[in-house]
Design a protein around this nucleic acid. Structure first.
Length: 626
DNA sequence: GTAGGGTTAG
């Protein structure tokens, strides 16, 4: 074999050639020396850095084709031949690369290899563990992450503030805030001082589980320990309040922030503007307004006056506002505007646009946007495909959804929990039960951690296909798992039990909700209320309804309409009138089916004299009879 | 490790 050919085949040299080319490109494209260029100067981290964005693409394409099963093992082995001995930084960079690529299994293997320390003398350090722990949390593998945290201490490596903050953040994001608090206490116990970020993570956890009182406690504790809320903290609080529609409180927080001299940054402006995708409220300079485009513009110019440049996230926030309101054409124009002002739309901009098209049912337009995205050189990610896939599932075009799935695989994107859950839901919804069952059995036996969405989809799918017993068994097994059930889980089960005539079981379950730390919502109450009406327990129904309102759960329009229909169906016109009044008070409108029921009812002679029970506003329905 | 933007359930 000739020397030249041999050299071309040498993966290390080839890799070096690729790195060199990239480094030169980067260096000339940027006035500051890029990280990559720095990497080239320090040979040891050079290989590692290049691998970081994509060990899979970079190494696998070069190496796995040649039938080498463990390219990274070889890379590490051959680094000395390139004149650099891998150190803990090389390993850590590789670990980070694997985690970025969602290849946490391999990251763990590598970590174990380091830990085994077969004469290479490179034991993992605290950064190695932090990296992989974070990788597992990001993947939703809470148990694996936590076990690694324990394993680390077993090996005598002391967790630092980053470790603790990572674990606290991971647990909070998995809604396991109580466990996070325990870790927080352990941390203090061990003498590791928390920092602002630690507090922010915990506050985020309490906010996302709606525990406002705990948030207030944390804030007090924080300042008692000499930490003051920073821009991040205020961002969290404002975001929470805006999402809850609590504009007055948000305004107070915003004011106290500026009073303290903390200058709002572009993120704060984004939060204020976004205010729950414009659905609930947006706060503009302490003014609580309905989400109006003009107000958004005002905010935009004000921000510019402050010398704050909008970034792509900010624009995407506006995109999201437009898309959720169905103004997809405006969103499309915003993409053009972004290009003109020099803020390049990113994957999220296009994903949002695709979602907007799907929302208004223009699924083919959505698919076209994906093509445009590809043509401008953006690489769709899992979210992008999931969005399109969901669009197809919603349109009951499962086979098209499958082809999106195939395209995903072809483009090297690993489908995750959301992808599988979406397809599963689509299969159940279109009545392809046996396919759905095959899929979820495979999913469960794969050993991956699925989330509450997945299980709710399975439970609901089973129930809707007359397998309530099977669903109930699964539900019971979930109760003993370390998976936080939510109110939707209970509502699915209660609904199925009621429908199957198992009233007592349903009521027991309803009573058990609070012992799981959950609160029934309008949907849950609606199921129980409808059942009470059906059973003729009308006083009990009234009692339940007022108990609901006392508990702070406001009835929604769908619920009130359903209840009115139920009452009309039962012939309790006076009660129906009373609940129609509530509907009226709240400015909800009658659903078409409610209206037609009222009309057909009053068109019957024997109900004429009942018209007096109708609220004034609806009397005309009585006149609508022929 | 670090707030704001895009995906899944009744």
């Amino acid at each position: 074999m000739s020397g030249a050919r041999e050299r071309r085949r040498d993966p290390c040299l080839e890799l070096e050639r690729v790195i060199g080319a990239r480094a030169r490109r980067e260096a000339s494209a940027s006035t500051t020396r890029s990280k990559l260029f720095d990497g080239l100067l320090t040979h040891a981290s050079c290989l590692g850095y290049c691998l970081q964005p994509s060990p899979h693409r970079c190494v696998s394409s070069l190496w796995t084709q040649r039938g080498w099963v463990r390219p990274w093992t070889l890379l590490i082995k051959r680094m000395p031949e390139l004149g650099c001995t891998p150190n803990v930084v090389s390993y850590n960079t590789l670990l980070k690369g694997f985690c970025n690529e969602k290849r946490t299994g391999e990251a763990l293997e590598l970590l174990h290899m380091m830990a085994d320390d077969q004469g290479r003398s490179c034991p993992p350090d605290v950064v190695s563990y932090n990296t992989v722990i974070n990788g597992f949390f990001t993947e939703g593998e809470v148990d694996k992450a936590y076990n690694l945290f324990l394993a680390m201490m077993d090996r005598g490596i002391q967790p630092n503030v980053v470790t603790y903050t990572t674990v606290i953040d991971g647990l909070c994001k998995a809604q396991l805030v109580d466990r996070a608090k325990v870790v927080f206490l352990q941390m203090i116990d061990k003498g590791v001082k928390p920092n602002n970020d630690t507090y922010n993570c915990l506050i985020h956890g309490y906010l996302s589980t709606g525990q406002w009182k705990q948030v207030v406690r944390m804030l007090k504790e924080m300042s008692a320990c000499g930490f003051e809320p920073d821009c991040f903290t205020y961002g969290l609080l404002l975001d929470y309040l805006c999402k809850k529609g609590k504009c007055t409180e948000a305004k107070n927080i915003f004011d106290s922030m500026t009073r303290k001299g903390i200058k709002p940054n572009v993120a704060i402006y984004g939060i204020l503007l976004h205010g729950y995708a414009g659905r609930k409220c947006s706060l503009v300079y302490g003014l609580c307004t309905v989400d109006r485009w003009e107000k958004a513009e005002e905010l935009f110019f004000e921000m510019l006056n402050q010398g704050i440049r909008p970034n792509v996230v900010f624009f995407n926030t506006i995109m999201c506002n437009l898309c959720t309101k169905g103004q997809v054409m405006k969103a499309q124009r915003l993409i053009d505007l972004m290009e003109r002002v020099g803020t390049r739309p990113d994957v999220i901009s296009y994903t949002t646009l695709i979602g907007g098209h799907c929302l208004v049912g223009r699924i083919d337009e959505a698919a076209k946007s994906l093509d445009v995205m590809l043509s401008v050189g953006l690489k769709p990610n899992e979210w992008t495909y999931n969005t399109l896939l969901h669009g197809y599932c919603k349109a009951r075009r499962i086979d098209d959804a499958y082809s999106v799935f195939q395209e995903m695989l072809r483009n090297g994107i690993t489908p995750g929990v959301v992808t599988y859950s979406t397809i599963l839901h689509g299969l159940f919804k279109t009545g392809r039960f046996s396919e759905a069952k095959e899929l979820y059995l495979n999913m469960i036996s794969s050993g991956k951690q699925w989330n509450i969405y997945t299980y709710n989809i399975i439970l609901n799918g089973l129930c809707k296909n007359n397998r309530v017993d099977e669903a109930f068994k699964m539900f019971q097994s979930l109760c003993s798992k370390d998976l936080q059930l939510d109110i939707i889980t209970f509502t699915i089960m209660i609904g199925a039990l009621l429908k199957g005539g198992r009233r007592e079981d349903a009521m027991n379950l309803f009573g058990a909700i609070s012992s799981y730390g959950l609160v029934p919502d309008a949907e849950t109450y609606c199921l129980i209320a409808e059942n009470l009406i059906e059973e003729g327990s009308l006083e009990e129904f009234d009692g339940l309804f007022s108990a609901m309102e006392k508990n702070g759960t406001a009835p929604n329009s769908r619920m009130l309409n359903a209840l009115v229909r139920r009452l009309l169906h039962r012939g309790d016109i006076s009660r129906a009138g009373a609940y129609l009044s509530k509907l009226n008070e709240k400015n909800f409108s009658l659903e078409a089916s409610t209206t037609s029921m009222l009309i057909s009812l009053f068109s019957r002679e024997e109900y004429q004299h009942h018209a007096k029970f109708l609220p004034e506003k609806y009397r005309f329905l009585n006149e609508a009879k022929k």
